[in-house]
Design a protein around this nucleic acid. Structure first.
Length: 476
RNA sequence: CGGGGCGUAGCUCAGUUUGGCAGAGUGCCUGCUUUGGGAGCAGGAAGUCGGAGGUUCGAAUCCUCUCGCCCCGACCA
C-alpha cells in the first residue's frame, strides 16, 4: 500500500514538495538550495528547450556560450546592476591553490561579460542587430529555496541583443515577451498575462522590465518569464558604440530576456491535482503509456504482443509512447503511478478489449475514459493528444477567470486577498502606494497588463487618478 | 543573524527521560500465488545511531565541543 499525496486543499506547499519528489522530477542536493534534476524532470526541461530553441531561431537568434566565471570588476561597472545582485552572489576567491588577485563571480546573469564582449563584436551599423542567446546555468544565493521555483543554481536561457535604435530594442523586448506568452499558452497550456513590471520590481540595470504572469492552482501568481528593455545602460557602462551610416558614433540599444527551470515548477502548479502531475501533451516526455492487463502467462504473451504492435504504430505516428510491461506490478498500481507522473493518455489493453478488437483510452486532465477500435489508435492518437492539449488550456483558463476579480475598495481587497486569485485594481502609479499595499497585505503588483483597456478610475488606496487597472496578487 | 525543532536501514520514524544484544513500517532481493484502480504469503540483505572528544566495566542514550538540516522571523523573487 502506497501513501496518497497530501491533498492540495490541506497543504498546497506540501503537496507541491511531495509531487515533485514522488513523480521523480527532482530531489534536494547535498548543497543547500541546490537541486538534482532527475531524468523525468530533465526530460520535461528538454522538451521545453527544444521548442523554445526553435522559436528563438525562427526569430533570428543564434546560440553562443559565455563563461561561468566573471571578473568581479565587471559586475561593478553598472551601478544598479551590482546593487541589485550583490546580496546573492557566490564568489570564487581561490583557485590553483592560491588566492586570486581578482575574485571571480559565478554568473547570476551574463549581461556584464556579454557586453564586455559585444564591445569588440560591434563597430558598424552593419553589425546590428546582434541577436544572441545562450543556454546556461546561473547561481543566485537564495535564502528560501524551493525545488524548481527558487534554487541557488538553476538552468535557463538568456537572450542578449544589440540594436541601432531605441524603437528596435523596444520591439525586440515585446517580441520576445510574446514568444514566451505563445510558448506558455500553446505548449504549457498555461494562460499568461503579458505586462510591464513596476519600477520597484524591474531588473537591476533595465529601463523597463516586462513579464508573463501565470496563476497557479492555489490562486497565487508566478512570474514565468521576463524580458528587459535595457536602453543604453549597458552600452554606456561597457562603452559599446557603433558607427551609423552617416559616420556618427552612437551607443547601441540593448535587450535581455530569459526563462528558467522555474517553468517546470509552473507547469506542476498550473495543472496538478490531488492525483499528481497533469502534463500538457506537447511537452510530456511520455505522451501515451500502454498498460497491459492479463491473467496467467499464456494471456500475458498474447496481450504483450498486441501491446508491442500498438507501441510501434503509435511511435510511427509520432507519439512519445511507453509500454509498461513490468511484471512485478499489477495494473491498478501502474494506473496510479502514471497518473502521479501526469502522462496525458493511458491506453489499457486487456483480454476483454482484445476480444472486441478495442482498447480503452483514459485521459489524465479530465479523468474520462473511452473505447477505441485497435486499428484507429495510431491514426487517431495525434488528434486525441491535441484535444487533450486544448482541454487542459481551457480548464486552466476557466480556473483563472473564475479567480480574477475587479475590485475598487481597499477594504474589500484586504478581506479577499487571502483567498488567492488575481485582483484588477486601480493604482496611482507611486512606489509609496505599492509598498503600502505589500506591507498591509503581502500582495504585490504583478504587472501592468499590455492589453489593459482604457478604464480611467481612482486608486483604491489614495483615490488619485489611474489610467487603467493593474494585477495585484500574492506571488511565489 | 534571532527564536524553536530535528539528525538512528534507501525513505518515514520508535528507542534517549531511568546507560546493558540495533528496532518497526515501507522500500529492496529471492521464491510461489496473483494481475480490469495502489496484491498475499514465506524467506533474505541492509545501519560508523551526523562528527570529534570525555565520563563509565559498558554510551544511540549522560557531559563538552562541532557540523548539517527543517520551521517561524529578517532578507530575496
Amino acid at each position: 500500500m502506497v501513501e496518497k499525496l497530501t491533498s492540495q486543499s490541506v497543504d498546497y506547499p506540501r503537496w507541491y514538495q511531495e509531487v515533485v519528489q514522488r513523480a521523480d522530477l527532482a530531489e534536494n542536493a547535498p548543497v543547500r538550495g541546490a537541486m538534482i534534476i532527475k531524468p523525468y524532470g530533465y526530460g520535461l526541461w528538454e522538451q521545453m528547450q527544444s521548442v523554445l530553441d526553435r522559436m528563438f531561431k525562427e526569430t533570428g537568434h543564434q546560440n553562443a556560450y559565455f563563461p561561468l566565471l566573471i571578473p568581479e570588476s565587471f559586475l561593478k561597472k553598472e551601478a544598479e546592476h551590482v546593487e541589485g545582485f550583490s546580496p546573492e552572489l557566490a564568489v570564487v576567491t581561490h583557485a590553483g591553490g592560491k588566492r586570486l588577485e581578482e575574485p571571480y563571480v559565478i554568473r547570476p546573469t551574463s549581461e556584464t561579460i556579454i557586453w564586455d564582449t559585444f564591445r569588440n563584436w560591434i563597430q558598424s551599423y552593419r553589425d546590428l542587430p546582434l541577436l544572441i542567446n545562450q543556454w546556461a546555468n546561473v547561481v543566485r544565493w537564495e535564502m528560501r529555496p524551493r525545488l524548481f521555483l527558487r534554487t541557488t543554481e538553476f538552468l535557463w536561457q538568456e537572450g542578449h541583443t544589440a540594436h541601432a535604435s531605441e524603437e528596435e530594442a523596444h520591439e525586440e523586448t515585446i517580441r520576445m515577451l510574446g514568444v514566451y506568452a505563445t510558448f506558455a499558452e500553446e505548449y504549457m497550456a498555461m494562460p499568461v498575462i503579458q505586462g510591464m513590471k513596476t519600477d520597484r520590481e524591474k531588473f537591476a540595470g533595465a529601463v523597463k522590465t516586462y513579464s508573463i504572469e501565470a496563476m497557479m492552482g492555489d490562486g497565487k501568481a508566478l512570474q514565468a518569464g521576463t524580458s528587459h528593455d535595457l536602453g543604453q545602460n549597458f552600452a554606456r557602462a561597457f562603452d559599446v558604440k557603433y558607427q551609423t551610416s552617416e559616420g556618427k558614433e552612437e551607443y547601441v540599444w540593448a535587450t535581455s530576456w530569459g526563462v528558467s527551470t522555474r517553468l517546470v515548477g509552473a507547469l506542476v502548479m498550473a495543472h496538478g491535482d490531488d492525483q499528481g502531475l497533469v502534463l500538457p501533451p506537447r511537452l510530456a516526455p511520455i505522451q501515451t503509456v500502454i498498460v497491459p492487463i492479463y491473467k496467467g502467462s499464456e494471456q500475458r504473451s498474447t496481450v504483450i504482443e498486441a501491446c508491442s504492435v500498438m507501441e510501434k504504430a503509435l511511435q510511427a505516428a509520432g507519439a512519445r509512447t511507453h509500454l509498461d510491461d513490468r511484471e512485478q506490478f499489477r495494473p491498478g498500481f501502474k494506473f496510479n503511478e502514471w497518473e502521479l507522473k501526469g502522462v496525458p493518455v493511458r491506453i489499457e489493453v486487456g483480454p476483454r478489449d482484445l476480444e472486441r478488437g478495442e482498447v480503452v483510452l483514459a485521459f489524465r486532465h479530465s479523468g474520462d475514459k473511452k473505447s477505441l477500435p485497435i486499428e484507429a489508435v495510431a491514426t487517431e492518437v495525434m488528434n486525441v493528444l491535441e484535444e487533450a492539449q486544448r482541454g487542459l488550456f481551457e480548464k486552466a483558463l476557466a480556473a483563472r477567470e473564475a479567480n480574477t476579480h475587479s475590485i475598487d475598495s481597499f477594504d474589500e481587497f484586504k478581506e479577499r486577498i487571502d483567498g488567492g486569485g488575481f485582483f484588477l485594481c486601480h493604482w496611482d502609479g507611486t512606489t509609496e502606494t505599492e509598498e503600502l499595499i505589500q506591507q498591509q497585505t503581502k500582495a504585490t503588483i504583478r504587472n501592468l497588463p499590455l492589453d489593459a483597456p482604457d478604464d480611467p478610475g481612482r486608486c483604491m488606496v489614495t483615490g488619485n487618478p489611474s489610467p487603467h487597472r493593474v494585477i495585484i496578487s500574492k506571488a511565489y
